[in-house]
Each structure stands twice: as C-alpha cells, then as structure tokens.
C-alpha cells in the first residue's frame, strides 16, 4: 500500500446521480401498478367527476355572463359537495402520503436495502429517484384530472376554454403538484425516521390532521399572545390579523388555499389584510391580468416549493447518516 495516497482527492468518484433513472423507472412502475394507487386514483377520479359535474350543473345557467367560466368549474361547489379545489386540498396530501410513507423503511423491511446499496450507485440517487418517482406519479394523476375537467367542461358547457383560463389552470396544476410535494417529502422523512411503515403513515397523517383541524385555532390563539390588543386601536387589530395570517401560512394547506384562490379567481386582489384606504380607486370585482395574479400568489407558490425542498433536504441528511444494517 505504499502508493501515493488518494487523500488529496476529497470529492467522491463519479456522479451522485448514477442509476437515478433506473430507480425512477422502477419506482414509478411500482406506483402505477400498485393496488394502493389504483384505489386512490379511483377515489380521486370519482371526486373530480362528481364535483365538476355538480359545478357544471350550476354554471350552465350563467353561460355567457362569465369570462372565466372554466375556472369556476374548479372553484364552484354545490351543496353538499365542496368545490373541486377544496376536495383536492384533502386528497392530494393523502395520495402524496400514500406514495411515500413506506419508501425507505419498506426497503429495509424487505431486506433489499443492503443489496441495493451494494450496487454501484450512491444513496443520493436512491432517495432522489424515489422522490422524483413520487412527484412524477402525483403529476401524472393530477394532469389526468386536469385534462378530464377540461374535457368535461367542453362537453357540459359547450365552450372551449380561453388561453388565459388554460394558463391559469396550468398554474393551479403546478401549485397542486408542489402542495403534494410537501406531503411527499414529509412522508419520506417519516419513512426514514420510523422503521415501521404504519408508524410513518400515522405520523404523516397526524401532521396533516394537525394542520387541517387545529392549526387555524392555534394560530389565532398564538396571534393574541404575540400581538395583543391592549387599547383597541385599529392598528392593533390590523397587526393582530397580520400576525394570525403569517402564522396560518406555516400550514401548507393555507398556502395551497391562498394560491388556488389567487390564480383561479382572477378578481382576487390581495391575499392579506386589506384596509379600506388601500382600496381607494380600485374597481372591485374586475379581474386582474394573469401576470398580476401570478405576482400575487408568487410567495405562496415559492413557499410550497421551498417547503418541499427543505423537507427533502432534511430527509436526505437523515438518510445519508443512516446505518445500512437493520
């Protein structure tokens, strides 16, 4: 061993993405053929068809009066059904969690992990491949729903969508995918932390329930502590509302909801607290141009993407440090 030491070379040999596409291909094939996904796809298709059908019943009466009729397909609910975007707000986390909760611990439990990592690939490729496969599957499902809605819309309303409507709904598609990405990355982190897939699934669902059911209440209580109303000034109430909003935005579902409203309801001018003075000169009810709506939801969209990346990075660090032996 008296040859020159390789210590000078600190960087690892080869690309960390060697084998990435092999992993993506295999994982996607697994997702698309698994019974679990088939059930979820069925649920989501039924929901989409049901809500859009109900919405179009409502909308047929107003054809011709609304510039953004197609977008209303996404946002109109009819008792007792909520609107499609509301449904998807619940279902997307569910699909995302279902795609990832056993991604890493499943390999350990099947005793395939050490065999996999003994192949000439880095762990990076394995984890990123699994994440990408989940994201692609999610995108595929959501794109199918999107196409289905557009198709049903044309059939039921008898109109083609305008370019702006198509663009806006495509932006919504991106929002929905990254909203799913957050939950996908979260479930993946839990699948690294917990050895039992059931534990990882429950933990993910617990976080989801926490944000959906309790976070709103906690945010308003916390806001009262952080920005108390002492003298009853208007500024104090405005600050309280602002704090509450900031806190509420920690929840991915708040970001998703705001971004959805901002892009699918072109009349939305602000997602925050608006004082009457700020509305001076505004023509209420008139739609914003697409670029302005995009600017409006930009923080929400980037927030969702950032949360996805952060959670993935956390999972990445945890996975790199994990011992291979079970």
């Amino acid at each position: 061993m008296a040859k020159p030491r390789e210590q000078a070379i600190r960087i690892r040999e080869g690309s960390p993405w060697t084998g990435l596409w092999a992993v993506v291909g295999k994982e996607m094939a697994d997702h698309l053929t698994s019974a679990r996904m088939h059930i979820l796809e069925l649920i989501i298709l039924l929901t989409a068809a049901g809500t859009v059908f109900a919405a179009s019943e409502n909308l047929r009466t107003t054809v011709g009066q609304d510039r953004f009729l197609f977008l209303r397909l996404f946002t109109t609910g009819r008792d007792p059904l909520p609107a499609l975007v509301g449904f998807l707000g619940f279902l997307i986390p569910l699909i995302a969690i279902a795609l990832a909760f056993d991604s890493v611990n499943g390999e350990f439990n099947r005793r395939t992990m050490s065999r996999l990592l003994a192949q000439p690939i880095y762990r990076d490729a394995l984890l990123f491949g699994k994440f990408l496969a989940g994201l692609f599957t999610l995108s595929l499902v959501l794109s199918v729903i999107w196409l289905l809605i557009i198709g049903m819309g044309i059939l039921r309303l008898g109109l083609p969508p305008s370019t702006e409507e198509v663009l806006r709904s495509l932006v919504y598609l991106v929002v929905a995918i990254f909203y799913g990405g957050v939950w996908l990355a979260l479930a993946m982190v839990f699948s690294i932390v917990f050895r039992q897939p059931a534990t990882a699934a429950l933990a993910s669902i617990a976080v989801w329930l926490f944000f959906i059911a309790f976070w709103g209440f906690i945010a308003s209580s916390l806001a009262l502590v952080i920005s108390p109303v002492r003298y009853g000034f208007l500024e104090e109430f405005a600050r309280l509302a602002q704090t509450e909003l900031y806190l509420a935005r920690i929840a991915p579902n708040t970001l998703y909801g705001e971004a959805t409203i901002g892009i699918l309801q072109p009349e939305t001018r602000s997602l925050g607290v608006v004082l009457p003075t700020q509305l001076q000169g505004a023509i209420l009810g008139s739609p914003l141009p697409l670029s302005q709506s995009l600017a409006l939801i930009w923080p929400q969209l980037t927030g969702l993407i950032a949360a996805t990346l952060l959670l993935f990075a956390l999972g990445y660090v945890l996975f790199q440090r994990q011992e291979v032996r079970a």
Binding site: E6, I9, R12, E13, G14, T18, R111, S114, R115, A118, Q119, P120, I121, Y122
Partner: peptide, 14 residues
C-alpha cells in the same frame, strides 16, 4: 473514496 468502482467489481450477498 471510490465506492462506485469497488461496488461494480464486488458482488455482495447480504
């Protein structure tokens, strides 16, 4: 340092 070269030349049966 060279895990890929090693792992492509070594068969492992866990």
């Amino acid at each position: 340092r060279r895990p890929l070269s090693v792992k492509s030349r070594v068969g492992y049966l866990p």
